[in-house]
Amino acid sequence: MNRPGPGLSTIAIHGIPHRRPDWSPVAPSLYQSSTFVNPIGSDDEVLYSRYGNNPNQVELAKKYALLEKADAAIFVASGMGATALAHLAVLRPGDHLLSSSWIYGGTQRLFDEELGRLGIEVTYVAPDQVRLWRKSVRKSTRAIFVETPTNPLMRVIDLGPISYLAEEHGLALLVDATFASPVNFRPLEHGADVVITSATKYLNGHSDVIAGAVAGTASFVEEVNRLMRLWGQAIDPHAAWLVDRGMRTLAVRMERHNSNGMAVAQWAEQHPGISKVHYPGLPSHPDHAHAKLVLTGFGGMVGLEVKGGTKATERLLKRLKLVTHAPSLAGVETLVSEPRLTSHKGIGPE
């Protein structure tokens, strides 16, 4: 009889459970060192934190790979760093990228301003237009990028048709699932090849770290690691230690995020001053039926549209006491931000 493996909560705390040696520390040690003693005459790879092989970096990546059910993973200095290196690992000059048009503003600026300079073309497709995805594939297309749930409208994309298209044409499917966390959604289980996350958000959960992570096949992560060393994107050992600290409470925090998010969304939907609520847990959300099928929970992100526009929104924000007006998300405190001035600043209203 096969015993069931450890659950996500256990993995987030222990990784692969193992018996600890006597007198060993219960809390993981912090290896706050840039370099390590190298044996004389050894041609083994040196231990150097910029290479991503500091023990804190390595153990954190192993644990995250288990959560995403990936072969391997790597942590880098930011979520944008993870997005950039993941795409550089699969794209070359002359290649073509198909991207969802429903994406984080920083990602769109990366694609528009930087990939073009490298000779990589990007075509944006509305993710609900399945036929348009197929029509947009070229001979030079090498990858597809999707964000789900989306920022800031919380759309939940059906990866099924997109992953089928990617497999049919031999394309890499990269998915940013930052707004879900691996507790609520694991893209690799739905046909993705690569999962990207801003570890600044749910994984760390304490608003005190900037970090990103990428998970996928061992060969893909090896290429990301090669690029990380060249582009200088390694995560600091202390940041890795803090993310690991945050991940130990990831499962219980997500339970509370899910329940609080639903409570806020239900309250807001009945409030006369709110014109629209974007939350996949509500039956009124356009992707509610699909979200129920693929998400374990609906998360702590709620998008609100305030009646009266900008002036009414600013009046509301000035009255807040418990909720803090600041960019970012998914910490233990409640934050509110205006995408028009933060994540999507400079991007057209469409």
Rank of each mutant, 00 (worst) to 15 (best):
W267Y: 13
W267T: 14
W267C: 13
A268E: 05
A268K: 04
E269G: 05
E269F: 12
E269C: 04
E269W: 07
E269D: 10
Q270V: 00
Q270M: 08
Q270I: 06
Q270C: 04
H271D: 13
P272Y: 05
G273T: 02
G273W: 06
G273Q: 03
G273D: 03
G273I: 03
G273P: 02
I274W: 09
I274K: 01
K276G: 10
H278L: 12
Y279G: 11
Y279C: 06
Y279S: 03
P280H: 01
P280F: 05
G281I: 01
L282N: 12
L282I: 00
P283F: 02
P283V: 02
P283G: 15
H285Y: 04
H285N: 10
P286S: 14
P286H: 07
P286E: 12
D287M: 09
H288W: 02
A289K: 15
A289T: 13
H290M: 10
H290F: 14
A291M: 12
K292Y: 12
K292M: 13
L293M: 14
L293Y: 13
L293K: 15
V294E: 09
V294T: 05
V294W: 13
L295T: 07
L295H: 13
G297P: 11
F298W: 09
F298H: 10
G299Y: 01
G299A: 06
G299L: 01
G299S: 00
G300Q: 00
G300D: 07
G300C: 07
M301C: 00
M301Q: 10
M301T: 05
V302H: 04
V302P: 03
V302K: 02
V302N: 00
G303T: 06
G303P: 13
L304V: 12
L304H: 11
E305L: 00
K307A: 14
K307Q: 11
G308P: 13
G308I: 01
G309H: 02
G309I: 01
G309M: 03
T310C: 09
T310S: 12
K311R: 01
A312L: 07
T313L: 15
T313K: 00
E314W: 07
E314M: 15
E314T: 09
R315K: 01
R315Y: 11
R315P: 06
R315L: 15
L316W: 08
L316K: 01
L316D: 06
L316H: 02
L317K: 00
L317N: 00
L317H: 00
K318M: 14
K318T: 14
R319Y: 06
R319V: 10
R319E: 13
L320Y: 07
L320K: 01
K321R: 11
L322W: 05
L322E: 04
L322T: 08
V323Y: 10
V323G: 04
V323D: 05
V323N: 03
T324W: 15
T324S: 14
T324I: 15
H325W: 15
A326P: 10
A326R: 15
P327D: 02
S328T: 11
S328Q: 13
S328G: 04
L329S: 12
L329M: 08
L329G: 04
A330Q: 08
A330I: 04
A330W: 11
A330F: 13
G331L: 09
G331I: 03
V332T: 15
V332G: 04
V332H: 08
E333L: 06
T334E: 04
V336F: 08
V336I: 11
S337W: 02
S337G: 00
